[in-house]
């Protein structure tokens, strides 16, 4: 445990050096949200409700989703691929640690910094600048809980993509494919309520919904109770379990085909 904590601390220290990166990303996120505001305003036009959602609901939904997307972006799949190409993975594999936990703890720093430096200021801008009305109550507690699960799910998916890159020795294509599938099928870019029924049915059973739709619904829905929260969290835990098990089986396979050139 101590080793993993040390790893998390190191990743914070390593990241804090790149202050300008956070500045640009924060600026880009806020500007992006501002432009999304106009886009959705134009989509709504004179309509008060689309599929039961008002403009304010939808804007808050997509704005928070894109903030969470930036927050979760820790490039673990990219780093795994580079560690194969450069051969530095050997140094991690000979350590007496679990590889997956090692990668996870090395991401905690990125996540915390992204939260403090990008997500929180963006939410302040949303509330102060755009008068976003986030319902405050017990939902906040469940939202944070759900967000943590959502991060674990996001990490596991990226980890699996990283493992696939052990075989392909390339990352851009698979990582991009993963990103766009998540963005569309999780309801992050367009809320699931907007989907036609058949596609909604498909999205409902896939794991991607657990990343954005579940936490957003917990945070923003007015008339749902603890039972609904539990259902949402249960769905997340189910998929995390399935994907973690799959990723660990796949890891055993993938590690056998690792070929490192030189050292």
């Amino acid at each position: 445990m101590k080793g993993y904590l040390g790893m998390a601390r190191c990743s914070i220290m390593a990241n804090i050096v790149y202050r300008a990166h956070f500045f640009f990303t924060l600026g880009g996120t806020i500007l992006g949200i501002t432009l999304q505001f106009f886009l959705w305003k134009a989509i709504y036009g004179d309509a008060l409700l689309i599929k039961g959602m008002s403009f304010e609901d939808t804007f808050l939904w997509v704005a928070l989703s894109s903030t969470i997307f930036t927050m979760f972006k820790t490039y673990v799949d990219w780093e795994m691929c580079y560690s194969i190409i450069e051969g530095s993975i050997t140094q991690t594999l000979i350590k007496p640690t679990d590889y997956q936990l090692y990668m996870l703890s090395s991401r905690i720093g990125d996540l915390l910094l992204n939260t403090v430096i990008i997500a929180l200021p963006t939410i302040v801008v949303l509330i102060a600048g755009f008068h976003a009305a986030i319902p405050i109550g017990i939902n906040l507690l469940f939202f944070v809980l759900s967000l943590i699960l959502s991060f674990l799910l996001s990490f596991t998916l990226e980890f699996i993509v990283g493992l696939i890159s052990f075989r392909t020795n390339s990352i851009w294509g698979i990582s991009t494919t993963k990103d766009v599938i998540i963005m569309v099928m999780s309801g992050a870019v367009v809320p699931l309520a907007f989907f036609p029924d058949w596609l909604r049915g498909v999205a409902d059973v896939l794991p991607f919904r657990a990343m954005y739709d579940v936490p957003m619904r917990i945070l923003l829905s007015e008339n749902i109770g603890v039972m609904d929260y539990a259902k949402g969290l249960g769905f997340q835990i189910l998929w995390i379990t399935v994907l973690v098990v799959l990723s660990r089986i796949y890891f055993k396979q993938a590690i056998k085909v690792v070929t490192v050139n030189g050292g």
Partner: peptide, 21 residues
């Protein structure tokens, strides 16, 4: 790296089509 080539093509296609979707 033939896999890289194919995967890259596919990723580009996926991201273009996602915007259409």
């Amino acid at each position: 790296y033939r896999a890289d080539f194919i995967v890259g093509m596919f990723g580009m296609l996926a991201s273009n089509l996602a915007n259409v979707v």
